[in-house]
């Protein structure tokens, strides 16, 4: 697991997420720019690429939600064959992103992502 230099608060927020069984990494990403602020990722996960693309999806989803008149996005989960991407936007504009294995406990990850988002909010 690689740990990018970050403030203690950010590291603690990511710890909440990465300690969940089946989570392969967690990141704090700037929602506007798609840049990595802090990360704790297993080897082989391309942090900057995931950050840029996740932020891009988040922006588009946000627009779709607003257009649909259902308000701001609180949590999203994309399930793929070999894993999942789970994201919670923090009030500060940061995104808390988790990359997980397919059989991860999504409810638990969501809970920890929300707690992490509160922590960095």
């Amino acid at each position: 697991m690689t740990i990018a230099p970050a403030g203690g608060g950010f590291a603690r927020a990511l710890d909440l997420v990465t300690r969940v069984r089946g989570v392969r990494g967690a990141m704090l990403v700037t929602g506007d720019d798609g840049l990595v602020v802090a990360e704790q990722l297993m080897e082989g996960i391309k942090g900057p690429a995931v950050a840029a693309l996740a932020a891009s999806v988040a922006r588009r989803l946000g627009r779709a939600m607003e257009t649909a008149g259902v308000g701001a996005t609180l949590f999203w989960h994309l399930q793929a064959e070999r894993g999942a991407l789970l994201v919670v936007p923090a009030p500060s504009g940061l995104l808390v992103v988790a990359v997980a294995e397919p059989e991860v406990n999504v409810g638990l990850v969501r809970l920890e992502l929300l707690r992490a988002a509160e922590g960095v909010g």
Binding site: D32, G34, L35, S56
Partner: peptide, 12 residues
């Protein structure tokens, strides 16, 4: 455009 793209995407 900041509405369409981002620094992260451009860098990537």
């Amino acid at each position: 455009d900041l509405d369409v793209s981002s620094l992260g995407l451009v860098q990537l």
